[in-house]
Amino acid sequence: MPVPAERDHTQGLFADRCAGIGDEAAPDLAGQIEAVRALGWSRIELRTVERTALADLPPEAVRDLAHRLRDADLAVVCLASRIGNWARPVTTPFETDLAELETLLDQCAVLGCRFVRVMSYPNDGLGAREWASQAIDRLGRLAHRARTAGVTLLHENCAGWAGQSATRMLRLLRETDSPALRLLFDTGNGVPHGYDAAALLRQILPYVAHVHIKDARRTPQGTTEYVLPGDGDAQVADCLRTLLESGYRGAFSLEPHLSARPHAGVDAGTDAARPFVAAGRRLEQLLAPHHDTAARAAGTP
């Protein structure tokens, strides 16, 4: 079926800025590549392959990934790590995260990637001051190591000490004082965690270097239901407008959570690619009204 001319025009501007977290479409790399390429996009974000976290893959498997992604003309925009996430509280031995970072830095070199996603450590019985001190110290040391490798850590508004507070995120950046630590804004995280993500975004805008796209709404039973971007309560369209009008020039990485959340044990089944692609089409529709704004920011006539 021919693609409408208007979509071609929009896609031409945004295709190199849209990406997808591949394991939400398929567990295997071939399926992940197929889903992202079906959208006509040129970037992919990696988290797991064959249900295995990136840092647990052997070096030869990573070299194979790099070769296959180059053949598919896909660039790797970010590696989503487990560092400081919901499964690793602040009492986890620091060596666990340092070892993962070392592996991911090697992988960044092989894959041509410069971003690694991190979080800021859920508490585990520490007092408020000690929790803050430990989280800031750990991320500061990790950022120092990342900087020596030319990699930037991206702290997501999700789990951990600074995950849901703009004030804490800005304190984290101020006290670590490292250009190798910046922010990853996820449009949909405010819904399950109970805060206004659009309001948070306005406070952290200058430091946002990467964006995840998802949408969600609360059900009458108090659970979270993930929906196509724009159909929920996450104010995705408003967030996109805020980002683009501020001059944001980074990626929009799709993490729709519609049928797969591999990091949480919800596997990408055989039909996961279909809702993933549908969410990608919706993201394109939400970006389309901002063509002129993005063109001006990019210096495109």
Rank of each mutant, 00 (worst) to 15 (best):
107 Q>C: 10
6 E>V: 05
77 V>L: 06
42 S>A: 10
111 L>M: 14
259 S>W: 00
46 L>Q: 14
235 Q>W: 01
211 V>P: 02
117 R>C: 12
240 L>K: 04
116 V>N: 15
135 A>I: 04
65 L>I: 10
117 R>Y: 03
13 L>Y: 03
253 S>P: 04
197 A>M: 08
272 A>L: 02
174 R>G: 12
130 E>A: 14
53 A>T: 07
295 A>Q: 07
177 D>M: 06
127 G>L: 06
28 D>V: 04
292 D>N: 05
6 E>I: 07
143 A>F: 02
201 L>H: 05
292 D>R: 08
30 A>I: 06
235 Q>L: 03
19 A>I: 07
161 W>V: 11
259 S>L: 03
275 P>K: 06
148 T>A: 15
115 F>V: 09
78 C>T: 10
93 P>Y: 02
193 H>F: 02
130 E>T: 11
58 P>N: 12
301 P>H: 08
269 G>Q: 03
271 D>N: 08
291 H>M: 04
179 P>R: 14
252 F>T: 07
166 A>R: 15
234 A>M: 01
102 E>W: 03
298 A>C: 09
122 P>D: 03
285 Q>A: 09
43 R>D: 12
171 R>N: 15
40 G>K: 12
163 G>C: 12
267 D>S: 06
133 S>N: 11
129 R>F: 01
266 V>A: 05
225 E>V: 01
91 T>Q: 14
51 R>F: 01
221 Q>W: 04
297 A>Q: 08
138 R>D: 09
237 A>S: 06
37 R>C: 13
187 T>W: 01
92 T>S: 14
261 R>W: 00
222 G>C: 03
290 H>W: 02
128 A>S: 14
98 L>G: 11
212 H>A: 07
33 I>V: 13
116 V>H: 14
234 A>C: 08
150 G>K: 10
7 R>E: 06
141 R>G: 09
140 G>L: 06
59 P>D: 13
291 H>E: 09
140 G>H: 10
168 R>H: 14
100 E>R: 13
73 D>H: 10
265 G>N: 01
269 G>A: 02
4 P>M: 06
150 G>L: 04
296 R>L: 02
199 A>E: 13
236 V>F: 01
42 S>E: 11
282 R>M: 00
254 L>E: 09
206 P>F: 01
273 A>E: 04
257 H>S: 02
64 D>A: 14
262 P>E: 02
116 V>C: 11
42 S>H: 11
249 R>W: 00
101 L>N: 10
49 V>W: 03
180 A>H: 13
152 T>D: 14
165 S>D: 12
201 L>A: 10
18 C>F: 00
140 G>R: 12
162 A>Y: 05
22 G>T: 08
256 P>T: 04
111 L>N: 15
246 S>T: 03
39 L>H: 12
28 D>C: 11
281 R>W: 00
290 H>Q: 07
193 H>E: 09
198 A>I: 02
201 L>Q: 11
239 C>H: 01
134 Q>A: 08
167 T>W: 03
